[in-house]
Computed example of a mutant assay.
Amino acid sequence: MPRTSDRKEHPLSMRLPEADIAMIDRAATLRGRSRTDFVREAAVRAAEDVLMETLPIRMSAAGFEAFVAALSGPPTPVPEMVDLFRRAAPWEPGDPKTGA
């Protein structure tokens, strides 16, 4: 009787235009990865992003109350953010160290 085993890898096949393959190969080469590894990683990352966008956030009733209280309370300034917003951007005129 043939022995059955659980397969840990499953093939995936797709047809892509030559330009897409060339771009994927170039990017994979820049990352030092094979085409298969590069495409697998990109597909899994995209799938994780979609799942994270659609999964509900679960918390206890007490946790939800604390969350709502934090959102409903007065804002608390973060000194580093205040300093950052007071400085001129590097592409704006003025001294980037003082923001003036």
Rank of each mutant, 00 (worst) to 15 (best):
D37I: 08
D83H: 07
P77K: 00
A22P: 02
M52V: 09
T4Q: 09
T98S: 14
L51E: 13
S13W: 04
L51R: 11
P77W: 00
A66E: 14
A66Q: 15
R7T: 08
A70R: 14
P75K: 04
E92P: 01
E53N: 11
R31M: 10
A62M: 11
E92W: 00
V44I: 15
W91Q: 14
I57Y: 00
L30G: 10
I21R: 13
A89R: 12
G94R: 01
L84F: 09
F85L: 15
M81C: 01
P96C: 08
P74Y: 00
R45W: 01
F67N: 09
A66T: 09
S60P: 07
V44M: 12
V44A: 09
R87A: 00
E9I: 15
A61V: 13
V68E: 12
S5P: 02
A62T: 09
L71V: 03
T54E: 11
I24K: 06
P77A: 06
A69W: 09
G73E: 08
A70F: 07
P11L: 11
P56A: 05
E92S: 07
P56M: 01
V78M: 07
P96Q: 04
D83R: 15
A100T: 08
G32H: 13
P11V: 04
G32F: 07
L84K: 05
R35C: 07
K8R: 06
V50S: 08
A46I: 06
S5T: 04
V82E: 01
T76R: 13
S13M: 08
A66G: 11
T98Q: 10
A61C: 07
P96E: 02
A69T: 15
D25S: 13
P79G: 10
A69K: 15
F67R: 15
S5C: 03
